[in-house]
Simulated scan of single mutants.
Amino acid sequence: MDNNLIVKEYCNEYQAQVVDVILDIQQQEYNIQITKEDQPDLFSIEEFYQTGNGNFWVAICDDKVVGTISLLDIGNHQMALRKMFVDKEYRGAKFKTASTLLNSAMKWAREKSIKEVYLGTTPQFLAAHRFYEKNSFTSISLKDLPENFPVLRVDKKFYKYLVN
């Protein structure tokens, strides 16, 4: 395993790997009762995420998708950060996959003059909570989300990031 991680904009050739990486983390690692049928956006990434100011990225290492992140355009110069997942073998300081993905997405947001990025996550993702807080995301309540933020059934914890 080399540390030759690159972040690329999503294209259809990665679709099966994206679904596999996300479902494996959700179902196997965290035992979240969510199926691919519960996530139709995974089968129309270009139409769902890569519209308006939105985009979807994959982290690739040795021709394998090892992480994902997306920014969903919700209008009003605001984005929803969605589908941030990193294969457990590629987490941590060695690869810096999560940081690399987040930095790519936030650079995109700044270039698109986005003011705020919001996200919802599950209570189980404690390491993710620490990661977001370490990266200047502020914990907020459900009522503090913009009304156009798409709250998912599994989301119980919410964050806001001010893009500068």
Rank of each mutant, 00 (worst) to 15 (best):
E47P: 01
E47S: 11
F48D: 09
F48Q: 08
F48E: 07
Y49W: 13
Y49G: 09
Y49I: 11
Y49T: 11
Q50M: 12
T51Q: 06
G52I: 04
G52N: 00
G52V: 05
G52M: 04
N53F: 03
N53K: 13
N53T: 09
N53G: 05
N55D: 10
N55S: 12
N55Y: 11
F56P: 12
F56M: 08
F56V: 04
W57A: 06
W57F: 08
W57L: 07
A59N: 01
A59Q: 00
I60S: 15
C61N: 13
C61Q: 13
D63Y: 15
D63F: 15
D63A: 15
D63S: 15
K64L: 15
K64C: 13
K64D: 13
K64Y: 11
V65E: 00
V65Y: 00
V65K: 00
V65P: 00
V65M: 03
V66G: 02
V66K: 04
V66Q: 03
G67N: 02
G67T: 00
T68K: 08
T68C: 13
T68G: 07
T68Q: 08
T68F: 08
T68L: 10
I69K: 03
I69H: 06
S70A: 05
S70E: 05
L71D: 02
L72W: 07
L72Q: 10
L72T: 09
L72N: 11
L72P: 05
I74G: 00
I74Y: 00
G75H: 10
N76Y: 14
N76W: 15
N76V: 14
H77F: 12
H77G: 13
Q78I: 10
Q78K: 12
Q78F: 11
Q78P: 08
M79V: 15
M79D: 12
M79T: 14
M79N: 14
A80C: 12
A80L: 10
A80G: 11
L81W: 06
L81F: 10
R82M: 02
R82A: 03
K83D: 07
M84P: 00
M84L: 06
M84N: 01
M84A: 02
F85M: 06
F85R: 06
V86A: 05
V86Y: 09
D87T: 03
E89T: 09
E89F: 12
E89K: 12
E89P: 02
Y90V: 07
Y90S: 06
Y90G: 06
Y90H: 05
R91M: 03
G92S: 04
A93L: 14
K94Q: 15
K94T: 13
F95W: 01
F95P: 00
F95G: 00
F95H: 02
T97G: 07
T97A: 05
T97R: 04
A98G: 01
A98M: 00
A98H: 01
S99H: 05
S99A: 07
T100Y: 10
T100W: 03
T100H: 04
L101E: 07
L101M: 11
L102N: 01
L102F: 03
L102K: 04
N103S: 11
N103A: 12
N103F: 15
S104V: 15
A105H: 01
A105C: 07
A105W: 01
A105Y: 01
A105F: 02
A105L: 04
M106F: 12
M106C: 06
M106P: 04
K107M: 13
K107G: 10
W108H: 09
A109T: 06
R110C: 11
E111V: 12
K112W: 11
K112G: 07
S113Y: 14
S113L: 14
